[in-house]
Design a protein around this nucleic acid. Structure first.
Ligand SMILES: [Mn+2]
Ligand SMILES: [Mn+2]
Ligand SMILES: [Zn+2]
Ligand SMILES: [Zn+2]
Lengths: 155, 155
DNA sequence: AATATAATGAGAATGGTTCTCAATTAAGGA
DNA sequence: TCCTTAATTGAGAACCATTCTCATTATATT
């Protein structure tokens, strides 16, 4: 549990009660960070811990967490939404990027933004004011790139 | 119909037959470019044109189009996939970005990539070889930014 | 034209997510 | 602490975009 009292505060500030179910879901997220968990995966981890929380409650809780900025909902094109804790680093208000390997399916977080050029360009050309973004980079991780080279016998 | 023969070629090169249904779906996409259409929207436009094409066929066709690089499948978080023609501009092999307005919901295409800094950084730090990306920029369009200013009375 | 292969379409099935509603629990005041 | 009220929970039903099934039809090849 990273910072349970700020978690509780965020709930209460936004007009939600602090319940054992919400605390348990939060604790699963903390223990598994920086994993990207589905509602079902969280539900299973709770069950393994002999905590009887309904799947609807897991979904509802993750919805609330996402609304009040405790979690981010991410989508890696595999048919289900995934959730991860929002990092509360300094002035960071943009979501981090995701490197999605087309070989092994693994997903890595990339914490450097480096979107300034693009954002300035968009503001100039479209007068579009960017609030946040979702950046997914598809390619091959170091390990899969290596395998590809060996298999194709490229120089 | 932008370039019907290259469309036919792409189908045949990839081992698919050229059928009237596929030609019709392609033609709807061309006529509505650069819109981002759902399978259902395409189906409705076909029906309005008195073309009896099954919804399953529309889905299957869009799946094939996306596999062979005729269309891109995009997701604007509204519960359904959308499809748009791939621009066959010169050496462009990365998908374009999307500006999604949180006010009015409109989506604009941003054709400048400007992802070089980020891609170089990712290659250096992770040895991750980027093949393609998906970039969604959320914010307020010129019109909605204006409205927001007036409503909030900000300087 | 005949044959083999692929495509089509109507409807059923799928599956992640949301909804319903009766039972339970939390919150705040007395 | 007890009471009242409003919020939360959970089991299962409902939802709904998409995929699947399979008999029929169209296309490609000989
Ligand atoms: Mn992440
Ligand atoms: Mn687009
Ligand atoms: Zn990999
Ligand atoms: Zn707008």
């Amino acid at each position: 549990m990273k910072n349970n009292s700020s978690f509780k505060n965020k709930l209460e500030e936004s007009g939600h009660s602090f319940t054992s179910q919400r605390a348990e879901v939060y604790s699963i997220l903390c223990e598994n960070a920086p994993a990207h968990l589905t509602a079902e995966e969280i539900f299973i981890k709770l069950t393994q811990r002999h905590l009887k929380i309904g799947l609807s409650t897991v979904y509802r809780t993750l919805g609330i967490f996402t609304n009040i900025g405790i979690t981010d909902k991410v989508d890696f094109d595999d048919g289900m939404s995934r959730y991860e804790l929002v990092e509360n680093f300094d002035g960071k208000n943009h979501r981090h990027h995701h490197l999605i390997c087309l070989g092994c399916g693994r997903v890595e977080d990339a914490l450097d933004d480096l979107m300034e050029d693009l954002e300035n360009d968009v503001l100039e050309k479209f007068s579009f004011n960017i609030i946040d973004h979702s950046v997914k980079l598809y390619g091959y991780c170091a390990e899969c790139s290596m395998k590809n080279k060996i298999e194709t016998g490229s120089k």
